[in-house]
Amino acid sequence: MSIQHFRVALIPFFAAFCLPVFAHPETLVKVKDAEDQLGARVGYIELDLNSGKILESFRPEERFPMMSTFKVLLCGAVLSRVDAGQEQLGRRIHYSQNDLVEYSPVTEKHLTDGMTVRELCSAAITMSDNTAANLLLTTIGGPKELTAFLHNMGDHVTRLDRWEPELNEAIPNDERDTTMPAAMATTLRKLLTGELLTLASRQQLIDWMEADKVAGPLLRSALPAGWFIADKSGAGERGSRGIIAALGPDGKPSRIVVIYTTGSQATMDERNRQIAEIGASLIKHW
Rank of each mutant, 00 (worst) to 15 (best):
S2C: 08
H5S: 05
H5V: 08
H5G: 07
F6W: 08
R7Y: 09
L10I: 11
I11G: 08
F13T: 12
A16H: 14
C18I: 01
C18R: 01
L19R: 08
V21L: 07
V21M: 05
A23P: 07
D36S: 13
D36Y: 13
L38D: 06
V42A: 06
Y44C: 03
I45A: 12
D48W: 03
N50G: 15
K53E: 12
E56C: 08
E56K: 12
S57N: 09
R59D: 02
E61Y: 14
P65K: 04
P65Q: 03
V72I: 09
L73R: 00
C75V: 13
C75T: 10
V78R: 00
R81V: 06
D83W: 02
G85K: 10
Q88P: 05
L89Y: 07
G90T: 13
R91H: 09
H94P: 09
H94Q: 13
Q97V: 15
N98T: 15
Y103H: 07
S104V: 04
S104C: 07
P105C: 04
K109G: 14
T116C: 07
V117H: 03
R118D: 12
C121N: 02
A123D: 02
A123P: 00
T126K: 07
M127R: 09
N130A: 03
T131V: 05
A132R: 00
A133L: 00
L135F: 06
L136Y: 00
P143M: 04
K144G: 14
L146Q: 04
A148R: 15
L150K: 00
G154C: 06
D155M: 01
T158V: 04
R159I: 06
R159Y: 06
L160W: 02
W163G: 09
A170R: 08
P172G: 10
N173E: 14
T178F: 02
M180G: 11
P181I: 04
A183R: 09
R189C: 12
R189E: 09
S201R: 06
Q204R: 10
L205Q: 02
D207M: 11
W208F: 07
M209F: 03
G216D: 08
A225S: 13
W227D: 00
K232R: 06
G236M: 02
E237V: 10
R241V: 04
I243V: 11
I243E: 03
I244M: 08
L247W: 07
G251D: 11
K252G: 10
R255P: 00
I256W: 01
I256F: 05
V257T: 06
V258R: 00
T262G: 05
Q265E: 14
Q265S: 15
Q265Y: 12
A266D: 09
E270V: 12
R273G: 14
Q274H: 12
I275L: 10
A276S: 14
A276R: 13
A280Y: 10
